[in-house]
Nucleic acid binder design. Sequence first.
DNA 1: CTGAAAGCGCTTACAG
DNA 2: CTGAAAGCGCTTACAG
Lengths: 346, 346
Amino acid sequence: MRGIARLAKELGISTGTVSRALNGRPDVSPETRERVLAAARRLGYAPNQAARALAQGKTGSVGFMIDLDQETAASSDYFFMGVFDGVQSVIDEEGLDLLVLPCPTGKDRYAYLERFVQRGVVDAMILAAVQHHDRRIELLQANAIPFVTLGRSSLPIRHAWIDLDFESAADVSLSRLIARGHRRIAVTIPHGDVNFKHVFLDAYKATLTRHGVDFDPDLVFVTRRNEAAGYEAADRMLAMAVPPTAVLLIYEVTAIGLYRRLQEAGLVPGRDIAVVGFRDEPTTRFLTPSLTCFRLSLTDLGVALGHALLAQIPRFQSKFPLGLVESRQPLELRVGESDANPAPSP
Amino acid sequence: MRGIARLAKELGISTGTVSRALNGRPDVSPETRERVLAAARRLGYAPNQAARALAQGKTGSVGFMIDLDQETAASSDYFFMGVFDGVQSVIDEEGLDLLVLPCPTGKDRYAYLERFVQRGVVDAMILAAVQHHDRRIELLQANAIPFVTLGRSSLPIRHAWIDLDFESAADVSLSRLIARGHRRIAVTIPHGDVNFKHVFLDAYKATLTRHGVDFDPDLVFVTRRNEAAGYEAADRMLAMAVPPTAVLLIYEVTAIGLYRRLQEAGLVPGRDIAVVGFRDEPTTRFLTPSLTCFRLSLTDLGVALGHALLAQIPRFQSKFPLGLVESRQPLELRVGESDANPAPSP
DNA sequence: CTGAAAGCGCTTACAG
DNA sequence: CTGAAAGCGCTTACAG
């Protein structure tokens, strides 16, 4: 005999009462509760997760699906770790566990998620690296799994999401550059189908338009998330008939390669060409000249995701009455030396 | 009615037969099996995980516990992602799922793990960031959970582990440096209680002794895993009465700060001071002069962990008869320019 | 406040 | 090859 039955026998009471005492139900006498808790402690009892989930119809755990493929995972460094921390600080309070589900390289993301969803492994999901048309969103909706995405999708479906404020970042950085006379401002966007590629590019275009600057498709560079991509992008920029006078980088880490290529060409960021990075990353803090970039609180992002998720789960909705969250996390400009230069006079 | 019962009713057969058909048992007629599988597909049936785990007494999932605290997680970049990929490539084959369990910053690691173990959330565990005296190992053994650790512990308990071959790395790198005349070789070791701090330092000492070089405790620098720590370490080295002529870095990322501090002092790695980094990381590939360091296959490491773990799980032991794995993953020297210089003649 | 009992959705000896 | 039934370890109306 094991589990709750063992406790019940030991104490000479019914399993129902043990269960109620353990779960903090009000209809248990203080003495009984004390005896049960003491026995549980003494015997090192912990409720079996599977039995509990089966009886209650909920698992008490939320999944956070991430991609392992190079494009999204490489150099993701502290990003997800920080976000996980934020999420847990919120859901821990509500007795929920976080299970990170890493989709292996090359494995179909939809099939991977489907397996977990259909088998009822988690009560709710957080999805990272949202694609332009992300079928996983339909999957979760069809299975009535509460969820929130890190990043918007472009599907004509409303769902809870938290994203970075790309619009504001594009506005702030471009306005700075334009005010200093820059007109040929290159932008790098991610490779692949992640949705923020489109979001960021749209924001870039919109800001240019607002300032009366023409959009030039030749100034858009698709880069992967690594140093080499920054090097190559710089290389291509330098080879242009009329090179850009400023660059906006979507992946911070590309700054390392870009700096290197510029250095080889005898160019100094902030003197010969203006460079603004998108997100502050530890590995770029040591660049010289220091990089102007946007700072993001990973913990805050995680906390926002946690709150948004709880707001989608019926039993938490009264405590987190946020409705269908659609919000953007603020990005704060950290001014460095890399964009100090005005545009060269023509 | 739902789940298996629905299928059974739909087909007019018993739930037992449905279960046997679904699970590929041999004692089911081909026609029945086909009908069951077709119906399951049609109705989008997937077995409930909790019910299955309860009935079978196993969950079919393995946990991989990582730390979220800055010291071990920050700049861990692709490290774990690569390892997860390797682990999954192995356990997927056996029908096991990988659940990553990220222990929040500041939360007690033992208590965090205990919760998952006692509730029976996972069948087996992989532990990262093993401490010198890691009570989690005793916890898993007491609960008879099959496990393997990424890193050795110093407990007088035998358990399955996979570690990096610090001994060989110390030997190869120090032998190179000593052959070039270096005698004052600084070493950086991690902060905190991670076990490889001791392993690496011991290997460093042993190699020096073997070459007849005296160990000087002043040449040991404790560094955290970030750029700034490398900067500070270099700073302290330069301030010494007799500075080291060579440096062995345990964390690659510290090379960035170290390079910077050396540069400020007008010193060039590979010309004025020899630098060897421990593990190849993408962010240091762009350093100039290029860094001599050790390359590690993360996927191979993950695969080794997966195999070692399966060897600890009774039902897989015949397929993976490896016994109690205690092995070190090879590290391959990637020669760069940073340690090209011989020691200056005294 | 407590107990007896049904039920959560599966699996698996045991008969036949 | 298939069905009936017990059981996995919990939770939760329902009585009392």
